[in-house]
Computed example of a mutant assay.
Amino acid sequence: MFIMSKPWERFFYLLTYLSQGSSYLSPRAYAILHRMHHAFSDTEKDPHSPHHTKNVFTMMWETKHIYNAVLHRKRAIENRFERNYPEWRIVEKLGDSWFSRIGWVLIYVAFYVLAYLYLDMHWAFFFLLPIHFLMGPIHGAIVNWSGHKYGYQNFDNEDKSKNSLVFDFLMMGELFQNNHHKRPNSINFGSKWFEVDPTYPVIKLLNRLKIIEIRKKH
């Protein structure tokens, strides 16, 4: 969708690690799985289709195995998927380590405890901790399960992709899966006038600030 200079790539790579924390996903491995998903959407070769698994938990468990095989280079990857992705092996190795994941979990718990003790946070907020720990996989589960099972279709993509929400502020535009599968290189996941992709203006702003350069305009 867009390109950026090496320093900005490093900046956003590090920001990815800091923001994902305990649920960090390798940009390289994620990019490869995402390309496989588009190439084999809702077929048996799709790494995360809800139509070839019993439930969302088995879908994500199978996805985890494929992700780890790609991450640790234990699975043969087609050449068309192995290109144009950011890679920073030191950060990737750190983010995937148990030292890092457990460290982030302890930081989250400490934050909640301090908020409870000094900011009068209600005790019920502690039930959000498991979601905080696994934010990345939970986001992926919602997008890939709901986005290929529930909603409406603007386009016949020869798959089961759906647009689950009209105003997708929940998943930052990623639940416009039907639109995205039709135009995978579009920076705007919305297609109809009433479909709002909140990430789109952010990308436009970054382009205006010369932080990124949009490759294709739609």
Rank of each mutant, 00 (worst) to 15 (best):
A39S: 10
G136P: 05
F57R: 08
T63R: 00
H65G: 09
R83K: 14
I107T: 14
I66M: 06
W123F: 13
V91E: 00
K45A: 03
P47T: 00
G136Y: 05
A124K: 13
V91A: 08
A69W: 00
L71V: 09
F57A: 13
D120C: 08
P86N: 13
M60G: 04
Y67V: 05
M121H: 10
T43C: 06
N84F: 11
L117R: 15
Y85W: 10
E82Y: 13
P137D: 06
L106A: 13
W104R: 04
H51P: 01
L114M: 15
I131S: 11
L128T: 15
Y112Q: 11
E87G: 07
V70M: 05
K54W: 04
R73E: 08
S49A: 06
M36D: 01
H72M: 10
P50N: 06
Y108H: 11
V56T: 05
F111Q: 07
P50K: 02
V91H: 00
Y108F: 14
T43M: 06
P50C: 06
D46N: 03
H122S: 14
D46S: 03
K74E: 13
L129E: 07
I102H: 05
T63Q: 07
H51C: 00
I90Q: 05
R73K: 09
V56C: 07
E78Y: 05
K54G: 02
Y67W: 06
K74I: 04
L119D: 12
R35M: 03
W88A: 10
I66N: 01
L117W: 12
F111D: 07
H139E: 07
I131D: 05
F40C: 06
L129W: 04
F133L: 07
V113Q: 14
L119T: 10
L119K: 12
M59P: 00
F40A: 07
K45E: 04
S41W: 03
S100K: 05
I131P: 01
K64Q: 12
T63F: 05
L71F: 14
L117Y: 10
W104S: 03
I77T: 05
P47A: 02
R73G: 03
L71I: 06
H72R: 13
N55D: 08
H122K: 15
M60T: 10
H48Q: 11
I90C: 04
P86T: 10
E44G: 03
L119Y: 13
S100Y: 12
L71Y: 14
I131F: 13
D96C: 06
R80V: 14
H139L: 08
W123N: 09
H122I: 11
M60D: 02
W88V: 09
L94E: 01
F133Q: 02
V113L: 15
F126S: 10
F133P: 00
N79Q: 11
R89A: 13
D42I: 02
K93Q: 08
V113T: 15
R101Y: 00
N55L: 00
D120Q: 12
K74R: 14
L94D: 01
H72E: 12
E78M: 04
R35P: 00
L94Q: 01
R80L: 13
I66G: 01
Y116Q: 10
N84E: 09
T63W: 01
F133K: 04
P50H: 02
H65C: 11
L114R: 15
V91C: 03
M60Q: 11
A69C: 03
A69P: 00
A115P: 06
T63H: 10
K45Y: 02
W61Q: 09
F125N: 14
